[in-house]
Amino acid sequence: MLAEKYLRDAMMPHIWCPGCGHGIIMQAVIKAIDKAGLDQDKTVIVSGIGCSSRASGYMNFDTLHTTHGRALAFATGVKMANPELNVIVLTGDGDALAIGGNHFIHACRRNIDITTIIFNNSIYGMTSGQYSPMTPHGHLATTAPHGNMDRNFDVCELAKAAGATYVARSTAYHAAGMADLIGKALANKGFSVVEAISQCPTYYGRRNKQGSAIDMLNWQKEHAVNVAAAARLKPEQLEGKFVIGELHSSSAPEFTEQYDQLVARLQGRE
């Protein structure tokens, strides 16, 4: 069983609320790791602070639960110091894109071989419902009681523009497809981003009258358009929808490989 192999029984029960999508995303990550055949002893999971970032503690690897927003910076140190390690960052929309936004764009720019999964539930769940950089305009949060005036990021466009070499989006509803996309992200030698849309029925759904967890999953199903299908649609037909699937794939020199080459050259081993 995957759970026996990859989860830490001693850390159960987890802290996630009933109906939360994060467990589905963590399962997709585990399935992808298993399918990719990553060495469990050579894989490091790094996370920041927030509901999503608790996932690292539940996973049976070397795991690093860091400070708020800084997971990518810690992960960069891990990967730089030992490039043999597979480094996976699990982070949330607030963690990665508000307090950690600077680290995010620079990790993209460096194209360092790290796979980042952004658990996007559009809210700060751990602190019970404040608006994040992914909370849609006009939606409600405890700190946006009159409606959110901020516009939200399109994190996939952001990642692409900043230089990430693999970018994909999926949802908790499309769990099987998500695992495949994470698998491709793991296979990419460079910086990979998967936006994993999650549901927070407790602090986001309830306040914004989105119904139960099942209603929210159905919303994901109804509003997601596969990238292949989206290509055949007109912009007005995509109004109010979002695109899932592999959104960007390119190649660029990977950071730690370049550094290894520098070391080899300076040490005359080339």
Partner: peptide, 21 residues
Amino acid sequence: IQMEDEIASMAAVVGASLTGA
């Protein structure tokens, strides 16, 4: 590595040290 800011530098140092460096 020259990191994007001071905070990241401190974080990267901790990450690197955990690999034994």
